[in-house]
């Protein structure tokens, strides 16, 4: 299990989160290649089912990277995103799954460190918890 590369999915809003990821890549920041980035118009568009589906399909951990809450392009999109993440955490806890497998992060598009930091945190969580059920999907 220790040799296995964790599977992480990061949902990033196209206004700040994804731009922060691109900036990180251009700045030469290390981004773990096991992280899949899914660009969404706004984190407020993300529904619980998107996050759960990622876990269901084999991701070990999932994160959402949206705009800073007081500087959201769509005003309250990242607040909505945080609420969805909170609800999914609750559902996971009810299902007996570690709720830290899902997290919400916020960043401005100029925060080159934000995406690598979020990814690294989730990689650490995934390595610590291992895959759900202990094996490949």
């Amino acid at each position: 299990m220790t040799d296995r590369r964790p599977k992480i999915v990061g949902f990033c809003c196209e206004k700040h989160g994804a731009d922060a990821a691109v900036l990180a890549a251009r700045s030469g920041k290390h981004i773990d290649a096991s992280v899949r980035l899914v660009q969404v118009p706004c984190t407020g568009r993300i529904d619980g089912i998107h996050l759960l589906s990622a876990l269901e399909e084999g991701a070990d951990a999932v994160f959402v990277l949206g705009c800073l809450e007081k500087n959201c392009y769509y005003d309250t999109g990242s607040i909505e995103g945080r609420k969805r993440v909170g609800y999914v955490k609750q559902v996971l806890a009810e299902a007996g799954i570690e709720k830290e497998r899902v997290e919400m992060f916020n960043a401005a598009s100029t925060n080159a460190w934000a995406f690598p930091e979020a990814a690294a945190k989730m990689v650490e969580v995934a390595k610590r918890l291992g895959p759900i059920g202990g094996g490949e999907k």
Partner: peptide, 19 residues
């Protein structure tokens, strides 16, 4: 529809954990 999808997904994940 959303709640059905979420429930099914959560039950599948739970089952995977429990083998």
């Amino acid at each position: 529809e959303k709640e059905v999808k979420m429930l099914v997904s959560a039950l599948k994940i739970r089952n995977r954990k429990e083998g």
